[in-house]
């Protein structure tokens, strides 16, 4: 198969970027999207060009490193997969493929298609945990957890932190990411203890990072490679409203850490 690729090239965070056109040929339909890009990069190295930088690591759809906004969709045209699991048979021979980095103020471009997603780490650092130390915890079976709660928590916890939700959102909002973490922990008795404080701290952090607001278009759910439901956003909103209305004054930030 052969393709025309239009790829965003940008030397570094401050440089001006542009879309550049490349041709690749001799691609097997069984190749993954990244193997196709590997081929392009091999050609570029051999011909004295600079290879295209893109984020990737596990190449089996779980680490969340890969990104790429392909033909107007994060992770490309196939639903429920990451870019690394996308195969060239999902395209038509001779196609022109547009490849861009995730676009959001909170995800600045580092080079070419690589963006900085440390904003997600900051959100988790703001409260995406249960405050227990190693040691001194009760036996694992002390608190029974209803199976359906545990399953719902697992659904939310399946988030791989890739940022497709932000990339797809017309407002570059990170509500699905944060909603998934808040939901995961709030659904479990272990996480419930500090749920009210957690949601307030995480939302406060989110607002500082320059993400947009949710307008419930649900593009995030449609593009999430793990199919995480927007019901998690609603659950977080409920948690947040409850926490704002009913938590005691002065209890939120000071005692947090």
């Amino acid at each position: 198969m052969k393709f025309t690729l239009k790829i965003w090239r940008q030397k570094n965070a401050t440089a001006k970027g542009e879309m550049i056109s490349y041709d690749v040929a001799g691609i097997s339909p069984d190749s993954s999207f990244f193997e196709m890009l590997d081929t392009l990069n091999q050609n570029l190295v051999m011909t004295g060009g600079e290879p295209v930088a893109f984020d990737h690591d596990c190449r089996e759809g779980i680490c969340g490193t890969c990104s790429l906004y392909i033909n107007g969709r994060p992770h490309g045209p196939v639903k429920g997969v990451t870019t690394c699991q996308l195969h060239m048979r999902s395209f038509v021979d001779g196609d022109t493929i547009h490849i861009e980095p995730w676009r959001a103020k909170a995800f600045p471009v580092i080079r070419d298609l690589v963006v900085d997603r440390s904003a997600f780490d900051k959100i988790i650092q703001a409260g995406g945990y249960v405050s227990v130390n190693t040691g001194g915890v009760p036996d694992a079976n002390t608190i029974p957890v209803p199976k359906e709660k545990s399953e719902a928590a697992m659904d939310a916890a399946a988030c791989i932190g890739c940022g497709a939700c932000v990339a797809a959102c017309s407002n570059a909002a990170a509500m699905l990411f944060i909603g998934a973490k808040v939901s995961h922990l709030a659904l479990l008795p272990q996480g419930k203890v500090e749920a009210a404080m957690r949601v307030q701290k995480m939302v406060a952090c989110l607002d500082e990072l320059g993400f947009g607001l949710c307008s419930n278009t649900y593009a995030c759910e449609a593009e999430c490679p793990k199919g995480i439901s927007v019901a998690n956003i609603a659950r977080m909103n409920r948690q947040f409203i409850g926490a704002k209305l009913f938590s005691e004054k002065e209890k939120t930030v000071r005692d947090s850490l």
């Binding site: 945990y129 040691g135 915890v137 199976k147 272990q190």
Partner: peptide, 22 residues
């Protein structure tokens, strides 16, 4: 065994039976 205890306390959603146990 301590690992399992700690992970559950951290909120790791291990698979459970209908009775709520691991």
């Amino acid at each position: 065994n301590q690992i399992i205890d700690l992970c559950v306390a951290q909120g790791v959603p291990f698979a459970r039976e209908y009775g709520g146990l691991l």
